[in-house]
């Protein structure tokens, strides 16, 4: 059963061993940067800067699936953008067709270019999220939620829920086997009958998992869950020196990016004419600094000799 596995697999690479807080902050800053600035060169470099991390984490095969998905989405984005916007000045094609909702169909170079830049933006975001999905264990993600002082009860519930996924799948398989042993053929009959037969698995699974909730609740009560206001944790995630440096550098990155975006150092104009490929020197320096800081995660992760857990 392929769906029993998490997307996450421990490949024992330095990226997997990074502190989950740092991976999360790194991914968040790539996503925020991608949304904040729309300079095509910057977005392309941002996407490229995620690739070394993907290879360092040895997740390129899974990552390729994500990127392929982004490409399919990207085709739609290019089509909608190039059809929807008429404000570009270089007209590529004007067949004189009247479209419903949009008026006359005009495809301009600017709109097409905008569509492609948005695909790069999407690629950067999806690539960053794939690193997050494939290198951070679900339990550690919840640890991060707690580290950022998010409500612990919700995080605990999500952890509990994640832990019971394999158990419930096993239950479902067992019920299916039992029904088949009683002579129920799931592949016979018309669609309505098939749904009815599958429903018998569903209701049994529902009842058995409701019984399970009682067991879980009772074992939680037996361990005095929620009896104290201040709770304690079995594992503690601590941030050591390198982690702190990485964390501060990411906050700096975001501050610099917001500042330069407001000041117009990194500004690109799409309509009515493409303008802004030549940036002021300050803009290029800021872009270089941001990318170097983002890329530094891989060498720093390699440098660190962290014991597992």
């Amino acid at each position: 059963m392929s769906y029993l596995k998490f997307s996450y697999q421990d490949k024992k690479t330095p990226i997997h061993k990074l502190n989950p807080v740092i991976t999360t902050v790194w991914v968040a800053s790539v996503v925020i940067l991608a949304l904040l600035l729309d300079h095509p060169v910057f977005l392309a470099l941002l996407f490229i800067s995620t690739i070394p991390v993907v290879f360092a984490a040895k997740i390129h095969r899974e990552w390729a699936i994500f990127v392929k998905l982004a490409f399919y989405l990207g085709i739609v984005i290019v089509i909608i953008n190039s059809l929807a916007s008429n404000s570009g000045s270089n007209i590529l094609w004007q067949p004189g067709i009247h479209l419903p909702l949009l008026g006359e169909m005009v495809i301009t170079m600017e709109a097409l270019f905008y569509g492609f830049v948005m695909v790069i933006r999407l690629l950067a975001i999806i690539s960053a999220f794939s690193i997050f999905t494939f290198t951070v264990h679900p339990d550690n993600m919840l640890m991060v939620m707690l580290k950022f002082k998010l409500p612990y009860r919700s995080a605990m519930m999500t952890a509990l829920s994640t832990r019971f996924v394999p158990t419930l799948i096993e239950d479902a398989m067992r019920i299916k086997d039992a029904q088949q042993a009683r002579g129920l053929d799931f592949d016979k009959g018309n669609i309505y009958e098939r749904i009815k037969k599958r429903a018998s698995i569903f209701t049994s699974l529902l009842s058995s998992s409701l019984e399970r909730t009682i067991q879980i609740a009772e074992s939680m009560e037996a361990r005095a869950f929620g009896s104290c206001k201040q709770r304690t944790y079995f594992h503690q995630t601590r941030l050591d020196g390198v982690d702190r440096i990485l964390l501060i550098s990411h906050i700096l990155i975001l501050a610099v990016a917001i500042f330069s975006s407001i000041k117009g150092f990194i500004y690109f104009q799409f309509y009515p004419e493409l303008n802004g490929f030549v940036l002021p020197v300050a803009g290029w320096i800021i872009i270089a600094a941001i990318l170097i800081l983002l890329l530094s995660i891989t060498p720093l992760a390699l440098l660190k000799k962290r014991a597992v857990n």
Partner: peptide
């Protein structure tokens, strides 16, 4: 936060998490 501020007993907590699992699987 709204959920967190309520007094929810352990039974309901366990129920919500397991039903979440069921819907997810």
């Amino acid at each position: 936060l709204e959920f967190e501020s309520r007094h929810v007993n352990t039974k309901e907590l366990a129920l919500i998490s397991i039903m979440g699992t069921l819907a997810a699987i």
